[in-house]
Design a protein around this nucleic acid. Structure first.
Lengths: 342, 342
DNA sequence: CAACGTAATGGTAGCGCTACCATATGCATC
DNA sequence: GATGCATATGGTAGCGCTACCATTACGTTG
């Protein structure tokens, strides 16, 4: 006896329904959908008709199970609200919106352990590609990435030893460039202010350190950091701390633009002249840096482009033509503005 | 003849491997993992041992196919970089990080068509729940949501006619409250400045309009809007436009905080006194509003909480106890600050 | 003590798709 | 005309899991 069709599925049309309606085999429907060039014009048209008529949509779960490959990009970032990562993610989304790939976004909260957990979860569904922020994965995470069996792109930074591919820039050079600019503009007692000292911030600090040493200006009391999450209000507080510690401060290189903005506001409030008394340099160059008064010098980074490039590289690798250059350095640019124009 | 185990799967251990090792049936392993209380202590221990030893991780795709239900939350927002939605998304992520649910995040770019497309894609994998921003879905989108066969939460706004559940607040009331505050503080020629006039912005404008009408202060020339994407620099430009159009302007209610910040910076630049000459009110109350100089009055909205609440409601519905209140209004608060303290 | 739960376990049969292999057809090649 | 080979299509057998329906062992009840 024949049972009523499908107890479980919500009665959605399946590939078999389409095949029946179009008078072809199921596999031909499958092919018509995935590799149309391998099916004759005639059948293709017929199948398309049946698909439209039934409102057939392939089941991605069944597809993933059968092909041992999910059409999913796994993306791991340390923060969802930090504009910097949001821009990278936006680049990724925009590059993938015309593709069949879905995106699974994970938030590691800057935690290596959480990253491992998410990598485990993401890996278990056999994603088409993985994009992760940073190059400082734990050994476990690294192994998970290496064994993921799909293209992997590390973004935001470049380094010597990619898991697979990399798109980013040198935070050390960025920090150095920012600091050298302040020195060049005549500032001498230049502080470093940083929150959330993740590995990238550490390297910016290292760049600052290198530049200051080279100029013979380094003094450990010039450095003010905290592990707390970065914010504008924190920038203000850190700047007050820095000033209390070192009243002769005449410039600051800020870990990021939020901090720089906090510094600027505090200068307004305390009637400290920018750029005469204090010079300010930020990092990332958010839109508002050029609108601020005075406008704030910052290191422009190409976040959106990093996201786009990462997807382009992953897509190429999926298609079988792995890019020549496994490490792409998109660089950065110093934007000179009023906040350092003494 | 027996073929070598599994040509396709990458040789990962399956539930059958675990069952064999633990000396039980596959279904018992499945149960031990999903409903441990239905399996005896003894077997549970044994199975856990086998799982650990083999490093078994269930295949979510197979699971989804067999159970006709993916452990996925679909989340649709109009923008990834707008801090407002980023906060909602963060709330969703934080609430889901200890659950087995993965998150699929879609970016509609404020487009109804794109929303329809994403709903189609998301729906096809039978998600456990859907969270969408806004209450102004197209008829097609609404139908897709109604037929999704899973809990649906509309967030950011409340309205009379939920698809299923709602968490948000009244943007109209928010706009009205902001405007009434300006009036109360003695401002009279109060402008509205808004970018990206999405439905929520429209309702804030309506609130502004209502308050101004009621006070007998409305004048259409006081309203300055643009469909362009909101940004700090755009806020500055719109404010200049508004001032050119209406030089006697003495206050502005800004569509959002980015715009308000742009206005503030332009006032600095043009040496316009805030709050004496111009009063400023923003919307959303980003962290930096209280740090700005002068600090900016804003309507505080509970974005993070909206995300958390939406997940809590969806989770309850999945568990079978749909909340009594299908519409949750989380309200907002007026934060009075220096920018309106005449 | 027969009849009847109830708790714990297992077997079978798919879920909806695609990898793999087979088959059929047409056409160039020798 | 037999052979080979590319092109177009189809059948079969899973992918790794869980829904559904046994089955067994052990009370509990009148």
């Amino acid at each position: 006896m024949i049972k009523p069709r499908s107890r479980r599925g919500g009665g959605r049309p399946t590939i078999a329904d389409v095949a029946r309606k179009a008078g072809v085999g199921a596999i031909t429907v499958s092919r018509a959908l995935r590799e149309p060039e391998r099916v004759s014009q005639d059948l293709r048209r017929q199948i398309q008709l049946a698909v439209d008529e039934l409102g057939y949509v392939p089941d991605p779960n069944a597809r993933a199970l059968a092909s041992a490959r999910a059409e999913v990009f796994g993306v791991l970032v340390p923060s969802l609200t930090n504009n910097v990562f949001a821009e990278v993610v936006r680049g990724i989304y925009d590059s993938l919106s015309d593709s069949p790939f879905r995106i699974q976004l994970g938030n590691t909260h800057y935690s290596g352990l959480e990253e491992e957990r998410l990598l485990q979860v993401f890996g278990s569904q056999r994603p088409a590609a993985l994009v992760v922020a940073g190059i400082d994965q734990t050994p476990t995470s690294r192994k998970l990435l290496e064994n993921a069996g799909c293209p992997v792109v590390q973004v935001m930074e470049t380094g010597p030893d990619p898991v697979d591919m990399m798109v980013g820039f040198s935070h050390l050079d960025g920090g150095r460039t920012a600091t050298e600019h302040l020195i060049e503009m005549g500032y001498r007692r230049i502080g470093f202010i940083g929150a959330r000292m993740d590995p990238r911030s550490q390297r910016r600090l290292a760049g600052y350190h290198a530049a200051m040493e080279k100029a013979g200006l380094f003094d450990p009391r010039l450095v003010t950091t905290t592990p707390l999450l970065s914010s504008v209000s924190l920038g203000r507080e850190l700047f007050r701390d820095a000033l209390a510690k070192m009243p002769t401060l005449d410039g600051v290189f800020c870990n990021n633009d939020d901090i720089a903005l906090g510094v600027l506001f505090e200068c307004h409030r305390a009637a400290i002249d920018v750029p005469k008394t204090i010079g300010i340099v930020g990092f990332n160059d958010l839109d508002m840096m050029q609108v601020a008064f005075p406008s704030i010098t910052s290191i422009r980074t190409h976040r959106y482009e990093i996201g786009r490039r990462a997807v382009a590289m992953a897509l190429a690798a999926i298609a079988g033509n792995r890019p020549q250059e496994r490490i792409v350095d998109l660089g950065f640019e110093l934007r000179r503005r009023e906040s350092t124009a003494r």
